[in-house]
């Protein structure tokens, strides 16, 4: 009898799913025929006609939409990759500092985590853009011997220029994600049984040696799932670039939708872009996880 009920429920579930998909597809075809645009990707080879502020490769308005989207892809990857590195670095530092329960450093990092985690990312991006960079009125706000230069034009590192939009996004994403990564790091370290601390201490090992040789290796596997989900969030959050006017894949898609009305196609492009990117991140982290586990045995 129980089997029959289960079977029946599954049939109902499948029916609901079919009806849902049918409604969506029906809506889509009605809307497409109403706008009279149709559904195809031939427009990708037409000239885009808009200019881009941020172009790591050669680009002019006479280039195709496809090329504009590719530039957006590279812009997205650039900011995601660099933010990922900075966020991890800052996150590890803050996470370690947070472990000092009663010290001043511990207090500061706890405050950092609280403020950053409790405020919206959009607000923080606005802050870095309008308060952080656009307010640097004179051209060299911070200038360390031609090495790094912060100004209204962004960051100049060894003559490599990063726009203020990119810099604001980089700061915002890195700092926002670092607070979450710090908690992942702290959680991972706290997951190591306290007996392990007592064991290395009782052997006369210093806190530093014990931390590096005993605690960190055991905490590493606990870092991976948390880090993966933070990296996925970071990649998705990068689409807020549009708020500070950075031409990432989302912002360029947005412009193209406005120009051509090709919303469905653009959504499909965006969707698959992030699906591929995040599957890549997940798989790389899975690989790292495997490496950590296999290095033990």
């Amino acid at each position: 009898m129980r089997l029959n009920i289960k079977f029946f429920l599954q049939i109902v579930l499948i029916l609901i799913l079919i009806i849902f998909v049918w409604i969506i597809l029906n809506n889509l075809s009605i809307n497409l025929s109403r706008t009279g645009i149709g559904f195809d990707f031939y427009w990708l080879s037409k000239p885009a006609g808009f200019s881009l502020a941020e172009k790591p490769l050669r680009y002019s308005p006479s280039d195709t939409y496809a090329w504009a989207l590719f530039i957006g892809w590279i812009n997205s990857l650039k900011v995601i990759f660099l933010s990922l590195i900075f966020a991890t670095f800052i996150g590890i530092l803050i996470g370690f500092a947070r472990l000092n329960k009663n010290s001043f450093i511990g207090l500061i990092s706890a405050g950092y985590i609280t403020v950053i985690r409790q405020t919206p990312l959009l607000l923080q991006l606005m802050f870095w853009y309008f308060v952080g960079f656009l307010n640097l009125r004179n051209n060299n706000f911070l200038n360390f011997n031609q090495i790094i230069n912060f100004s209204v034009q962004g960051i100049d590192l060894f003559g490599i220029k990063f726009s203020s939009e990119f810099s604001a996004l980089l700061f915002g994403l890195s700092i926002f994600s670092s607070a979450f990564i710090a908690e992942v790091i702290r959680g991972g370290i706290l997951s190591v049984p306290f007996g392990q601390w007592e064991a290395f201490r009782s052997l006369g090992l210093s806190e530093r040696t014990g931390f590096i040789k005993i605690i960190i290796p055991q905490a590493l596997p606990a870092f991976i799932p948390g880090l993966t989900s933070q990296y996925l969030n970071l990649a998705k959050n990068s689409t807020l670039a549009i708020a500070v006017g950075y031409s990432d894949i989302y912002a360029i898609n947005d412009t193209i939708i406005n120009q051509t009305g090709r919303a469905i196609e653009c959504f499909i492009i965006l969707l698959s872009s992030f699906l591929i990117l995040n599957l890549l991140i997940t798989n790389i982290m899975g690989l790292i996880n495997k490496l950590i586990i296999s290095s033990r045995k």
């Binding site: 049984p193 007996g195 392990q196 007592e198 064991a199 009782s202 006369g204």
Partner: peptide, 19 residues
């Protein structure tokens, strides 16, 4: 630290380093 270098300890839960 000086004491710990000269005094050994064995715990209820062994506390061997699993890695």
């Amino acid at each position: 630290k000086k004491i710990r270098r000269r005094v050994g300890m064995v715990f209820q839960q062994f506390n061997l380093f699993p890695h």
